[in-house]
Amino acid sequence: MTLLLTMLLLHGCTGAITTPEESVILAEDGALAADVSSDNTLALISSVNDGILVWDITSREKKFQWSHQGEGNNLVTNIHIAPDNSHAVTSDREAFAIWSLISGEPIGFWRIDESSIRDVAVSNQGRGILVGRGNGKVMFFEHETGRRIEFLGHQEKINSVALSPNGFYALTGGNDYVAYLWDTRTGQVIHRFPHSSRVTKVALDDQGRYAFTADSKRDAIVWDVQSGEMISNLSFIQRQKIFSTARFSQDGKYLLTGSPTRRVNLWNIGDGSEHTEWKVTPKKGSRPQSAVVYATGFLPNNKLLTISSSGLAEVWSQ
């Protein structure tokens, strides 16, 4: 009881940081999705009115502007940058495309007729594309060779997917209360991560150390990828916490998460404790005032980067 009271008092005293050190408009009328490259030099934005935008974060210059399905409204809600910055994948509910981040040119476009696309990921050199669908199937596709494998382990719709940089390992989570780590070369399950409710977010550490799986209730777990054992369960007071993005720090000490309610949290991986909380700037004109945090990144000198549905890239101090 005393411990709980102490935690409540600490939480009430600290509060969330709401004033960024810097703020840059990347999408004037807001964003539908965003991703930040692993080295935090590129930002990929699905804008409300200007298609898909690629920004150089360092120079703050727009590199490319793409249209996913030609003219008309932009409906892209899933995007991902390959860990080596070579390629990007974009998708709406019915089609996905792969692009070169070197030339800015499209490489391929594929339509999915069987079921809606829920999430996508791409590996280094654009070699493999992972597509999670509403019918519970996950497709791994190599566009250069035409090789395709379908993972049929899930029983209900997929909510989130992640892919290792080399494309050999996939992490997928769905409404069947399970996340699977599986081999894209064989389709074989490596680890099964059970939850008590639908799995809403998954993430993989680029260094191959950790997996993160979170459900719609209280479990948000960091796992050891090698052993499959739980390292920590994130500790928060709310009855539930939904995550819209998650990223591991390069030194393996921290997990940075974003939510659909403006909140950005830094967690200690070792014990699941919260280090700091921030709240991004709300989307202009939103009622109630809020914003979805789509992407986060670790910058040098203990700085953090966030991109949200407000269309803003914001820099914060730890």
Rank of each mutant, 00 (worst) to 15 (best):
G270P: 09
I190W: 02
F151P: 08
K303L: 09
Q65A: 11
D35H: 03
H143P: 13
W66R: 10
R287T: 10
R93K: 07
R218H: 15
V199W: 02
L75A: 14
V222G: 11
L171C: 05
Q69S: 13
R287P: 12
A95W: 00
G30E: 04
G208W: 00
N78S: 15
C13P: 11
L75C: 08
G132V: 01
F151S: 12
S227G: 14
E144A: 14
V315T: 13
T41P: 05
L5T: 14
A33K: 05
P282E: 05
Q69W: 00
Y254S: 15
I269M: 05
T281L: 01
D50H: 05
I231G: 12
R185F: 01
D251V: 02
H154S: 06
R147I: 06
K283Q: 15
T14W: 00
T145P: 15
W267I: 04
W223H: 12
G132Y: 01
S290E: 11
Y177N: 13
Q226N: 13
G153M: 02
K253S: 12
D224V: 04
E114M: 01
D205F: 00
T19R: 09
R118N: 13
I52V: 10
A27F: 00
L10K: 11
G258D: 10
I221Y: 02
M1H: 09
I190M: 13
D205G: 04
T18Q: 14
G297I: 00
H11L: 04
R127K: 12
T296K: 04
L32K: 11
G15A: 08
A246I: 02
G146W: 01
L26Y: 02
G285V: 03
T184S: 10
R111I: 06
L8P: 12
L44E: 13
A121Y: 04
W55D: 13
S100Q: 07
Y177K: 14
L10E: 13
A295L: 02
E28T: 13
R185N: 13
F151Y: 06
L9I: 09
L5I: 10
L299A: 12
L234T: 08
P260M: 02
V131Y: 00
